[in-house]
Design a protein around this nucleic acid. Structure first.
Lengths: 357, 357
DNA sequence: ATGAAAGCGCTAACAT
DNA sequence: ATGTTAGCGCTTTCAT
């Protein structure tokens, strides 16, 4: 017979009832040690593995959690899922991954498939749509946590976009820069808009004028990083420092600067990337740690399983500014030097990180 | 009531029996168009999503496939899973991911959990252990495909390790190199051993002596790439060309060469990495396309579902040698030049690839 | 073209 | 401490 062993086979083999087997498997109540041993032996011999389908059919909630992210091809999200998977494994849960590809419809299909179809024990997702009303019917039974982007009504794990940007741009100001570029604004993403607001705040407080020419903007989803970098460097009063608003832009900018032999231009990137510490000078980065975010999200999921009572809120995960060289380059000396001489010590957490991935 | 709608609710709402609803959902046989329309309407209104647990309990095989890989934190495997996920989505299947972390026991636990516990419709895995006898009981019902590393008895999707290495090392020989380093041999991995054998074959055919000093070897899982590179460059007769046997070694080697200002040393890497085309010169790579491998694996899984009859075999996915500069650097001219002058045209497929990831 | 009833493997009452 | 029984939501015979 090719039929896989079921609880009945174990029961028969151990000479007990199926309920006793169930009790042993689920570590329920007290089973006589001798009986338990016999059952465990039978399980071993037969190679019995409980059928999760039957289990979740009965209990209404399964042995897997669902994760919906932009795309697994994005290293940040891949690392995020990896962190979640590690935690899930320890908890005896499996992980169902699905990509939204930043499409609201696909996001809806994937979420419903997980929550209604697979009856997952919880969902962690990087929200795309502004609202997710279709989840309402399930949220009483399935905890849902948002990551990377915040959504009202959900526990949301995010990094302090605005605050981290403030520290980075302030560092440029302290180094005497007056022409600071915001490289790749994209109004479709609220996280990037929050970084933009931090940028503006620092300029205002420092008394520096805001120059729209210093902002590169992605329109219709595309921006040629190379020519955009050339434009900023070719202005009458060129940019002397670059804040790259996301890892993709940072990679493009780094490549562009290297190709134009301008790699000694000051630069800080939001988001770490694999070769940031390989190129010279190293690219200073705001480190958005996917493991920290993944762990926090999983933690929230577990907490929600216990008490679904308390109000959902935003959970802010700390970032670090990795000083690798490119962010510490001072402004070139100009004839009309007006910058203050007070080189304020930044309160930024600093760290170095070895081993490129 | 917070109960999610079931097939019964749909049946009641549409005024038909549950079997008719089942038929509509599964696109079975011919249902009267009018009836079908009524059922579809009811499904729409109620937001009905079939319960996969019940479905797989009944049918014995579920709506998900399982993928077990080394680690999602490895960009190659993340991209591989991404490719698989895309294909699965089109087929209406979900993806359960699990990591082995290169541990045989964990591999076994994960595989059994997927196959016996979740009753997945198929498994794609990057094998760790040499044998997987515990899968035998399930393979008649669950198709299993190996990727990246080959295993007898399984359909295995691999790239032509030896052949691709031969092309790369031959290119060095054609450019006059006589001191070619094999950077990072690791005897634990059969793929890397196959690359090693290709390296040896080229040397033998070219009449070049094999010098063990030119082989860097990972022992006990660790190798300091930087000092190892220095050693090879500091030999009495130093290495003039490097074959990096894997992406991790390639990253370490690139960093080491740049730090020592030796970036104009000839180098070809097995496996592409994100900044290979950003540094100068670009690092020539043997491109091991995860999307190609993922697609081939999924294809095999589907084929196995149809006919499990034919003998499992190895499926070799093509590679390309991406000429980016570092692999085309000729040997420095020496006083005792003995190399033939015939610069053989290589049969290598060449391509350029834009956009660093 | 449609329906009734049995049962997949397990857990949760409710015995004993 | 252990056993009996019902039923989760669906698909699958077998009728009609």
């Amino acid at each position: 017979m090719i039929r896989r062993p079921g609880i009945k086979d174990v029961a028969a083999s151990a000479g007990v009832s199926i309920k006793t087997v169930s009790r042993v498997v689920n570590a329920e109540e007290a089973v006589h040690p001798e009986t338990r041993a016999r059952v465990l032996h039978a399980i071993q011999v037969l190679g019995y593995v409980p059928n999760t389908a039957a289990r979740s059919l009965k209990s209404g909630t399964g042995g897997a959690i669902g994760v919906v992210i932009d795309s697994l091809a994005d290293p940040f999200f891949a690392a995020l899922v990896s962190a979640i998977e590690t935690r899930a494994l320890a908890e005896g849960l499996s992980v169902l991954v699905a990509s939204s590809n930043l499409d609201s419809d696909q996001e809806r299909d994937q979420l419903l498939s997980l929550v209604a179809g697979h009856q997952v024990a919880g969902v962690i997702f990087a929200p795309v749509a502004a609202e997710h009303p279709y989840l309402d019917a399930y949220r009483t039974v399935t905890p849902v946590v948002a990551v990377d982007r915040s959504r009202a009504g959900f526990d949301s794990i995010v990094v302090d976009d605005r605050g981290a940007t403030v520290l980075a741009v302030q560092q440029f100001v302290d180094l005497g820069h007056e022409r600071i570029a915001f490289f790749d604004r994209d109004q479709r993403f609220s996280t990037i808009e929050r970084r933009m607001s931090g940028y503006l705040d620092v300029l205002r407080e420092a008394g520096l004028p805001f120059d729209p020419e210093l902002v590169s903007e992605t329109v219709d989803g595309s921006l040629d990083y190379r020519s955009e970098a050339d434009r900023l460097l070719g202005l009458d009063r060129p940019a002397t420092a670059f804040f790259a608003s996301n890892a993709k832009a940072a990679i493009g900018l780094t490549a562009a600067l290297h190709r134009s032999h301008r790699q000694h231009t000051a630069m800080i990137a939001f988001g770490d990337f694999s070769f940031a510490d390989v190129v010279r000078p190293g690219v200073s980065c705001i480190d958005q740690d996917p493991f920290l975010i993944g762990n926090a999200a999983f933690e929230r999921l577990l907490a929600r399983r216990e008490s679904s009572s308390d109000e959902p809120r935003e959970w802010i995960v700390p970032t670090a500014l990795l000083q690798r060289g490119s962010g510490e380059i001072p402004a070139p000396v100009t004839t009309s030097e007006t910058g203050t001489a007070t080189a304020t010590e930044t309160a930024t957490a600093t760290a170095t990180r070895g081993g490129a991935r």
